[in-house]
């Protein structure tokens, strides 16, 4: 054996709070790998780690803030975006990323999303969409597909679901992407783009929640859902977003891609020229 020791630090160790692991997420949950995409994107971006702030709302996804060794804020249900706006406006040099769930960002926090996108505030929003309220035990939410069974839709969900990239694009988000937790390279790449892009960026990451959604909807375990992502995914950056909703039916496509990348004036808090 050569004298060289082959022990190396895991490249992402520096960005995780080792003293908080293991995390609380269930086996088969997609959250861990999506969080790793963010740490790798932040690392690769070459940006100063001290300038990153992560803001989460409440939910399983909302716990991400607590695992990242960055300035991190676990706020209240739905309020991650306005909290992030305060951080960013008071200290524009910060790179502020909101990482939260579908219920948090689009039900209780929906109004904040609308206005932050409209204003084109320079923050990144990452939504992990698992089609339900995972943390509270699998209730129906604003992205639950029509017909889906959840603990509060025992007869099937009678409501239509949000189509998030379509929504974000219609509001003027300057960067919009959707991937699944299977597409780690693409998620990483989109996150990297978002970090580098000035203005309001939005990434939806479809993710298995076997406990709250997969099992009750004949999808099965986390791995089964990942298989479904592989077979049903259609990568189409030019997709007509109006028709890119997701119903999670066995034979329905899951349309993915980097859909939007445009320029728009970034929000500045006042019209005063301080020069």
């Amino acid at each position: 054996m050569s004298g060289e020791l082959m022990v190396q630090d895991h490249p992402l160790d520096g960005l995780l709070r080792a003293d908080r692991l293991p995390h609380i997420w269930c086996p088969g949950c997609g959250l861990g790998s999506i969080m790793s995409c963010l740490t790798s994107a932040i690392t690769e971006s070459g940006t100063d780690l001290n300038q990153h702030a992560i803001v989460s709302g409440i939910g399983c996804t909302g716990r991400v803030a607590g695992y990242l060794k960055l300035d991190s804020f676990h706020t209240t249900h739905g309020r991650a975006i306005p909290f992030a706006i305060g951080l960013k406006l008071a200290k524009p040099e910060l790179v502020v990323t909101v990482f939260s769930g579908d219920g948090d960002l689009f039900s209780i926090g929906g109004n904040h999303f609308l206005h932050a996108a409209r204003r084109n505030i320079d923050i990144n929003v990452i939504c992990v969409n698992n089609f339900n309220y995972g943390m509270t035990g699998g209730q129906c939410g604003p992205t639950t597909p029509t017909g889906a069974r959840t603990t509060t839709t025992p007869f099937g969900n009678s409501e239509p679901a949000f189509n998030l990239p379509h929504l974000a694009a219609s509001l003027g988000a300057v960067y919009v992407a959707r991937w699944t937790s299977l597409h780690v390279r693409q998620v990483h790449h989109s996150m990297l783009n978002a970090i580098r892009k000035p203005g309001f960026t939005f990434i939806e990451v479809i993710s298995p929640c076997p406990v709250g959604f997969g099992k009750s909807n004949e999808i099965g375990e986390g791995l089964d859902e990942m298989r479904m992502y592989r077979t049903n995914s259609v990568v189409d950056p030019d997709a007509d977003l109006a028709n890119a909703g997701i119903d999670m039916q066995r034979d329905s496509p899951i349309v993915l891609g980097d859909f939007v990348d445009i320029e728009r004036p970034v929000f500045a808090p006042s019209g005063v020229d301080r020069g």
Partner: peptide, 30 residues
């Protein structure tokens, strides 16, 4: 704005106080 500070009108009071807290963590008296 003339003093180099930040004035922002938010979409509601839920957001206003959330932004105030965020601003404070960035060091501002908010």
């Amino acid at each position: 704005p003339k003093l180099g500070g930040v004035y922002v009108q938010m979409e509601d009071e839920l957001a206003s106080i959330a932004a105030v807290l965020g601003g404070s963590w960035s060091g501002a008296k908010a």
